[in-house]
Design a protein around this nucleic acid. Structure first.
Length: 449
RNA sequence: GUGGCUAUGGUGUAGCGGCAACACGACAGGUUGUGGUCCUGUUAUCUCGGGUUCGAAUCCCGAUAGCCACCCCA
């Protein structure tokens, strides 16, 4: 009388997704393109572990920051070590820099990295708990040319991926010399207007005052118009640095906007900060006859944040107890991949097979294993369905896959030492001796390329 | 963490209190080696648990999950 127990099928973890089929090619293409451009500019690849000591992230990201406070996947080992799944890449790369004595290499050290990162937050469009980032870091030199080069790589990689409407917003956050004074003035200003702030901003006022500047609430936007700007408070060093960055960008013809309200999430940034966006066209009229489809407030330009970064001259001290200037950025790979797909940009060069290998009978099946390997060696992509034995079922698949040539290797052919080559379009089939097959097939394939 | 919306085969949907339907896909076959069409069959305890009712996929409550937005961020 035992009640049948219904087992819930095991599902993937919330916010962590399977990436399948062509989507994998998109993700890989983004990673590869960034790496290709970066390596051209002298960056070297690095891969760091997914798990790090929790403390590596605690100070650099800001112990009050949301990421550290509630978004990190923390775990404790049997030995009692506190570890975390990495929520971002810069701290790890910086750690590696010190750990492997990269100070003794010619400076700056230029590194490119990529992989999965983890944040425990509520998933929504374009934001998952496991997400992929690719990024670069230039460590050990404070010259503004490094800021510019890093942006150069970012921009070129996105262009190389076929994204045309890329815009870079830049700003300077000042440094330890000038930012405290600015912060004080900012707080004083907002203290006077505290009552007009939205609920969230009242919280920001306490936690992260710089963030007051990029609230989207109407009253706060109005308020910030008269708010003090970092730009007016930069010290001489920061001012010079920033204007040099802009000069280099001008020189390279990289389009950018000065966004004086741009701030970034992590504590470790100083001086230059930037974000990269794709400008989306105004939304099209939804469909004819759907009069309610167009909302006027939506009919403006929208932009999608793809990545961002900046300079972090103080991070070295937090991680390696040495002041090491650095600049870098990270790109949201999943977002870029999604965007490319939406824009019908190809994920990879065409490798769709033009040949399908059909086998019939045990002897042919074995021979086809050898034949496939020969084709692979000469670089001919091929499709097959070795687990199906009926000729009809196999031909059916050839049709569905829209493959122009079927190579038929059956019991008879196996005995004769021949293969049949059938054109799916015309139905014409010729029989080739096996030893001539490899030579002939290359020529035949040219018809379809 | 806070809110809104949704939940029917592998996928996309219909049914809105009375036998769960359709399309696509997948698989098998239509007399043992020649495809696309066609035909047949197979593919669902209507997310789960309670309640209302003679009767629930349908109405109500709860759970769970997913999506979207806020916060935050890439």
């Amino acid at each position: 009388m035992a009640k049948p127990i219904k087992k819930e099928p095991v599902m993937s973890v919330k916010g962590m997704h399977d990436i399948m089929f062509d989507d994998v090619h998109y993700v890989e293409r983004v990673m590869k393109e960034v790496r290709r451009v970066a390596e051209f500019y002298g960056f070297q690849p690095i891969t760091t572990p997914h798990l790090e000591k929790t403390e590596l992230f605690e100070r650099p990201l800001g112990e009050e920051s949301d990421v550290v406070e509630k978004q990190m996947y923390n775990l404790r080992t049997r030995g009692g070590d506190k570890l975390s799944l990495r929520p971002e890449g810069t701290a790890s790369v910086m750690r590696a820099y010190f750990e492997h004595g990269m100070q003794s290499l010619p400076q700056p050290v230029k590194l490119v990295y990529g992989g999965s990162f983890f944040r425990h937050e509520t998933p929504q469009q374009g934001r998952f708990r496991e997400f992929r980032q690719v990024g670069v870091e230039i460590i050990g030199d404070d010259d503004a040319i490094n800021d510019a080069i890093s942006i150069r790589v970012l921009f070129s990689a996105l262009q190389g991926l076929g994204l045309k409407d890329i815009v870079i917003n830049v700003n300077s956050l000042g440094d330890r010399v000038c930012r405290p004074a600015f912060r004080k003035e900012l707080l004083a200003y907002y203290k006077r207007h505290f009552n007009q702030l939205c609920k969230d901003c009242k919280q920001r006022f306490k936690d992260n005052p710089l963030r007051l500047l990029d609230c989207k609430e109407e009253t706060c936007v109005a308020l910030r118009k008269d708010a003090p700007q970092m730009m007016d408070h930069l010290c001489e060093v920061c001012k010079k640095h920033f204007s040099e960055v802009l000069e280099y960008l001008d020189e390279m013809g990289i389009p950018y906007f000065l966004d004086v309200h741009l701030v970034r999430g992590f504590d470790y940034y100083s001086k230059t900060v930037f974000e990269v966006f794709e400008i989306m066209s105004p939304p099209q009229v939804v469909e004819e006859g759907d009069e309610q489809g167009v909302k006027p407030e939506v009919a403006t330009f929208t932009k999608i944040a793809l990545g961002g970064g900046g300079r972090y001259d103080d991070l070295g001290e937090l991680i390696g107890n040495r002041k090491i200037p650095a600049v870098g950025w990270a790109l949201g790979v999943d977002r870029v991949a999604e965007l490319m797909k939406k824009k019908s940009i190809k994920s990879r060069p065409e490798t769709h097979p033009k040949l399908f290998l059909i086998q019939l009978g045990p002897a042919a099946k074995k021979k086809s294993l050898v034949l496939m390997e020969e084709l692979r060696k000469i670089g001919v992509p091929i499709a097959h369905s070795l687990s199906k034995d009926s000729l009809r079922a196999q031909l059916n698949i050839v049709s569905k896959l829209e493959i122009p040539l079927a190579v038929i290797l059956g019991q008879k052919e196996a005995l004769d030492g021949t293969v049949g080559v059938r054109s799916m379009e015309t139905g014409i089939q010729e029989t080739l001796p096996m030893d001539k097959f490899i030579g002939t097939i290359k020529a035949r394939l040219k018809e379809f390329s």
